[in-house]
Design a protein around this nucleic acid. Sequence first.
DNA 1: CTGTTAGCGCATTCAT
DNA 2: ATGAATGCGCTAACAG
Lengths: 338, 338
Amino acid sequence: MSSRKITIEDIAQKANVSISTVSRVLRKSSGVAIDKREAVLQAVSDLDYRPNVFAQSLASGQSMTIGVVTQNFGSPFYDGILQGILLGLERSDYSPLFADGRWNETIEQHALQTFLDRRVDGLIFVGGQLPEADMMAVAQKTPLILVGRKIDSLAENCIHIDNFQAGYNLTSYLLDMGHRNIAHITAHMHYQNTVSDVAQRYAGYVQALADAGIEFDPQLVVQGTLLQQSGALAVEMLMMQKRPFSAIFAANDQMAFGARLALYRRGIRVPDDVSLVGFDDEMTAAYTIPPLTTVRQPSVEMGQAAAAALMNLIDGQPVNLQTFKSQLIVRESVARLR
Amino acid sequence: MSSRKITIEDIAQKANVSISTVSRVLRKSSGVAIDKREAVLQAVSDLDYRPNVFAQSLASGQSMTIGVVTQNFGSPFYDGILQGILLGLERSDYSPLFADGRWNETIEQHALQTFLDRRVDGLIFVGGQLPEADMMAVAQKTPLILVGRKIDSLAENCIHIDNFQAGYNLTSYLLDMGHRNIAHITAHMHYQNTVSDVAQRYAGYVQALADAGIEFDPQLVVQGTLLQQSGALAVEMLMMQKRPFSAIFAANDQMAFGARLALYRRGIRVPDDVSLVGFDDEMTAAYTIPPLTTVRQPSVEMGQAAAAALMNLIDGQPVNLQTFKSQLIVRESVARLR
DNA sequence: CTGTTAGCGCATTCAT
DNA sequence: ATGAATGCGCTAACAG
């Protein structure tokens, strides 16, 4: 076997050119005589040359990496986004570094610092808790995109759907199906100054009721934690209050699944006795019993858009983020009320 | 604002030492006079110095990164592993690079090449399709750990559970519950030379039947694709054959969910008419109707172990991989047959 | 268009 | 124990 790593110099020698010429053709930069270019390329392939990224980075100041901070690996919606990011980056020369903030500000901060230390060329936050001020400071120094979180002062760097509209539409659908007493399972309404997604869904719910001339009843709104278990507890809470309802709008599928189980335990049939809708269209939503009516966020597409936008940002090009449209997925968990 | 990046030289100057001394205390290497050490540390914190990783890497040859090749972001089991890897790496100085092979050998190969080009200090494959020979070649050059895939010639680098045993136990449980006609939904049995996880579960199923003195009936075994939809199709196939059965063992939860839906559509009750078990204990398994009996693989722990093992490998220490034990999770989807 | 040269910031011998 | 010197491999002015 050969031993010494082959460098740009070996290529230069073999191709009878200077190292800068080699560097030029490799960097696809300005004009190089076609014959020399080919000689270089030939040598590169002959010697199976691999540029040393360390040296490249040191000399250029670019790491060709981007940092991705996620919050909960394993959540379908966020995973979809990650998938999209990976996809969007695949054809580029950037590689993603990952960290999981686990919805813990300290951990998230640490992850951010790590990425900054590694001189990532850009950052994508998928969700997140860091204070608005911190994010702005970061954005000042490093290209930054936020997915699944909206910060007003960074609006141009945020990718999201219109959660208010989605909540409104979902509630309207239930109203159309004849439901008048619609319970809502929501979750913590805000991190820091940021209004959370679920808060906006809640607002849409409230508005839809108002527009339908239905009086809002706070007894029908209970707060969970986005986890399945909390959906079950929420149902228990609703039952305890003895305030009748014919439909439940859970702010995410997970809680809807939990709610479904609690109803099942009490012998309440879905959708015969109570209709149920969720939010996110997780993979399993189509395979629960009964299949769940929900809202799909185009998470993969959003992730891809995030990657694309970030690369534009890095290149100093305009970003122009579209708002993504959510889609109502009608399945069998809702019955028409006569 | 200040402008120029501060370097090790600034520290040296401020602390009245040479750059090599600074480097020494930062690298925690051999003896440095305690007072000088403190002066350096002081200067570092005063100036908020951040080492330039590019220069470090170029000089040391280490990237302090590890490459993680996954296959399907969004699958609960694999995500658990990724979570574990992230966790295990969190306290180290290594940062993970991610790529998604999407069960496509070409893409996987490309991801591998990218990581190699980036001079990762180690690699973790979560699943994977690459030929055994390729993997061995890689292992020769770069520390390598495989999770969720077993390659005989690389046995010492593989982390997995005993899928045969798990399949055996699960089947035995059904037998104990009085079932004699147990259908099995499996999936493609092997990539390349490697026997897949599901194949081993299948082997466990076969053996358990044999040990119970029950004749194996190939009609009761159908092959899916690990996706939910295929579980539903598998049930259709079973029904078509009119070969009666009282229980279904699906090789993973996803297919079990699909099967569940198909049964529901036909008005077949679970577990009253047919018992159902899955494999993986996905998050939602506990919240389906009825909650699903399944097998839990300690995915997070396996991921952590992978990270730990890899770091040992990198340090040239012995790896000593334990085999992880799976756990039977009994829930309500199985009825006792009288 | 092309070659020469000077760093990029740090780790690491090698002396002292 | 510590400082000086060398080089890691490449990019980017700078000349020609």
